[in-house]
Every structure is written in structure tokens, then in C-alpha cells.
Design a protein around this nucleic acid. Structure first.
Lengths: 232, 232
DNA sequence: GCGCGTAATGGTCAGGTTGACGAAAACCGT
DNA sequence: ACGGTTTTCGTCAACCTGACCATTACGCGC
């Protein structure tokens, strides 16, 4: 390094891979890009830091709130990975810290006539056809889905896809849809009720589904599963 | 955002949490900081991007090679997490992408009379006393150790702590030291030899250790462990 | 009210895995 | 040759898993 070397700076962005289970499929929240580059393609919601000293976690929460119109508190939000290959944005050097968010299938407030509103897209529709996506967002979505699939095994992440109160069937559907794998209802029931701290019964029951009413549970204090629920 | 808003840029750094097992303890590679801020404290090796368009993965490999004097190829190197809280560096806004590196206990080429050379420090000596460390590096080391501990369960990461050829005992010592937990040698042997793709026998055997010679293995093609080796 | 379809939940049972530990194998040093 | 040491193989009970039958408890149509 010569004496004239100065510390390089880069544009700092955050992107969000927001996943949910909706209509029996895993979906990711995407926006239509209205500007170049990649105008017209689908992209992850996200953006640059709003000020030079905005915390990146705060920026992620802000973007999530802006894009979904929902309060980010209560939703699962974790850092996924940072993507910083030079050339990933043709305009300039951009390093983006990506976050994985998991939420239940809440109705997105469709406020404002904003044509570029975020919308849910089935993951399997975009993963096969990466040309639909801007930047390296196809790779990011693949990484996010991998992470989510893996974390269902050994953490209680699946409950983040559910409403605050849910049944064991609903939880099982989350596993089945995210993993694309059928699970035996009885064994699954035995397993999840056996892990302690995973589920807390509310005492309430469902009704009107044309079958035996299911006990309604709430998320328990556990965050890791011992033992894990393994895929095949 | 007003019309005069410009994209904020930040100084981009990479830091390395390099772990190894050495003298029956888990160690992390640290340097003595010779400059303010935090002069005199211990810090993770790392530094700013060398140019504005250096890839961050490449920067991590470069720093690793510079600090250890070793070729980074062949060593395990994965992104850990990005730390970007404002104020974590008192000089300016710095966002640092941290990497976790795992290596066997190779002798570090002590080339050059550089007083600030990297050296191995037992993890348990720094984790209790975070005041020894610069910036948020105490937290980063804690995160790195957590990640390593977790990945021993369900990946073949433990082999990255070993030389290319190793015995099952050596592998077991890695687990015991990283987890701070004793494992039964016979059950461990049965387990690791049962997972296929984990270990490949070389046909060679040890000698001169005052016991029955051990079969020497090499890392197999597997990267994930099915089933996992779980902690208690 | 009664049977039927449906979904939730409770069991059973064989097969596999784990943890605790005995024992044999194969070397070293003396 | 013998005791010490380390590796490797075996055994056995406890536990866990996957497959699957049975029971419970509802809504619905008649």
C-alpha cells in the first residue's frame, strides 16, 4: 500500500428474502423493478442504507416495514449472508447484507396505488427460471430456502410461518410444504408434542373443519429442537 | 428521500476468526493492535478491502494468507456474519464481513521480525475477559465458536481441524476439545465409521504411540452427516 | 337421531440407533 | 514374556423411528 492509499468505500445495501407458506406453496416476497438496471425483472425488496450511520439490522427492519406495511417486530428476521462480488450491480460497487425473514400468511396491506408493490411469488416458479430475477437474487433466494429448510430440522423456526395460535396439522403442513415431503401425521404429532418447550397448549380447540377438533397451541419458549426433526 | 440524497457509502472490511485445536485446547488466531484505536489490545486479523473492487471472499483469502503466511487454498473458509453497528469503530463507519476459518495446527511461518505477528490464543482465555479484545471482536469470537460447535454436529467440519491424514482418535479429540465434552471412544468409532463418505481408510497405520496402531483415514466426499453426531 | 366421511390423536410393534461397558487385538518399553 | 496403553470389536438394554391399526370426536345429510 502506497502512502496515497485511502480506505475504499462501497455502497451498502440490505435485501430481504421474506418467505411464507401460502396456498399450499412456499412463497417469496418480490417486487417488480421499475428502473434500470434489470428494469421489469423481479427483485428482492431492499435498498441502500438511509443514512451513513444507520445500523444494518435497523435498515433491514425498516425495509421490511416499508415493503410489507407491517410492523417488523414479532416477525422472524435473521441475517442470511452478505453478497459482495464486484460487478453484481453494473452501476457501481454494491455490497448487500441479506436477511431471511419468515412470516405467516398475513394479508399485505395493499395501501397506496403503488404499481410496484411487493407481491408473493411461489418459490418454485422463480428458482427454475433465474432469468426472471434481477442481480444475483436467484442465488440469494436459493440460499434463503436452503437455510429455512435446514433450520426446520433443528430449531423451532417452523412456528414463525404460523399465526400466533396454530394446530399441529398447520405446523405439519409447514414442514411438508417447505421440505416438499409428506410426513406421517401420527408420528409427527408424537414427535412435536414430545419436545418440551416447543408447543404450549392454549386449552382451546378448533371447530368446523369436518373432523375431530384439534388442540390449539402457541409457540413455546424453546428455540432449538432436541432431538431434531430430520428430513430424508 | 430528498432530491439531494446520495447513496451512503461505508468503509468495507473483512475480519477472520481462525480456529485450530492446539495443545489440547481450542485456539483463535489474534494479533496485537499496534495502532489506535484499541492500541495494545488483541484483535482478529483482518483489514479493509485493498481496492474498491476487490471481491470480499478474495479479500478474506488474501488476509488469511497475509496473516498466517499460508496458502489459503485447502483451508476451510466460510462467511460467518456481517457486523455493522454504527459506532463499533470509533473512527468512522466500518462494516466488516467476518469469516470463520478452520485449520489444523500447522506451524505458522514466523517470517519477518514483525512484532505484531499473529499468534494463537486459547479461546477460553479471551472469552471470559472481553476487555482484552478490540472492537466487538469478543462477540465475533463467541459467534465463531458457536458456529463451529454447531457445525460439528451435522457436517464433516471436524476434519478441517485435522491434517490430511488422521486417525479416529485425533478426530475424536477435536470433538471433545471443541465441545468440552468427553466422548466414548468405542461408540464414537462405531458412529463415524458408520456414516458413509465421512472417512476413507488409506490402508496405512500409525506406529510408535504405545498402543495398538490406529488405521489412518483421509477425509471422504461427504460434507453433511446423516445422521448427525449430537451433543448433550 | 343415525350413519358416514373426515381429521386428530392414541397405540402397537419391528427395526434401527444410542449409551454404557466388557473384552480382545496389537503395539511399546522393560 | 509381561504389564501398560490404545484401538477395535461385541453385547445388551433403553430409546427412537417409521409404518400402520384403532379410537375419538366432530360436521353433514337424511
Amino acid at each position: 500500500m502506497s502512502a496515497s492509499w485511502t480506505i475504499p468505500t462501497v455502497a451498502m445495501a440490505v435485501d430481504l428474502a421474506v418467505l411464507t407458506v401460502r396456498a399450499e406453496r412456499l412463497h417469496v416476497l418480490l417486487v417488480n423493478r421499475g428502473v434500470e438496471p434489470y428494469r421489469g425483472r423481479l427483485a428482492l425488496p431492499g435498498g441502500f442504507l438511509s443514512t451513513e450511520d444507520e445500523d444494518i439490522d435497523v435498515a433491514a427492519e425498516r425495509e421490511l416495514a416499508e415493503e410489507t406495511g407491517l410492523d417488523a417486530s414479532g416477525l422472524h428476521l435473521e441475517q442470511l449472508r452478505t453478497y459482495g462480488a464486484p460487478g453484481r450491480d453494473p452501476r457501481m460497487r454494491v455490497v448487500t447484507v441479506c436477511y431471511l425473514a419468515i412470516m405467516p400468511d398475513l394479508p399485505l396491506p395493499s395501501a397506496g396505488g403503488d404499481a410496484d408493490r411487493a407481491r408473493w411469488v411461489p418459490v418454485d416458479r422463480v428458482l427454475g427460471r433465474r432469468r426472471l430475477l434481477a442481480f444475483d437474487h436467484g442465488q440469494i433466494i436459493a440460499d434463503a430456502v436452503d437455510r429455512a429448510r435446514a433450520k426446520l430440522e433443528y430449531t423451532t423456526l417452523a412456528t414463525a410461518f404460523c399465526n400466533p395460535e396454530f394446530t399441529i396439522s398447520e405446523l405439519r403442513r409447514v414442514y411438508e410444504i417447505v421440505w416438499s415431503e409428506e410426513l406421517d401425521a401420527r408420528n409427527f404429532h408424537r414427535k412435536v408434542t414430545g419436545v418440551d418447550g416447543f408447543l404450549v397448549a392454549t386449552g382451546k380447540r378448533t371447530s368446523g373443519n369436518g373432523g375431530r377438533p384439534a388442540v390449539i397451541y402457541r409457540r413455546g419458549p424453546a428455540t432449538v429442537l432436541h432431538p431434531p426433526i430430520l428430513r430424508n
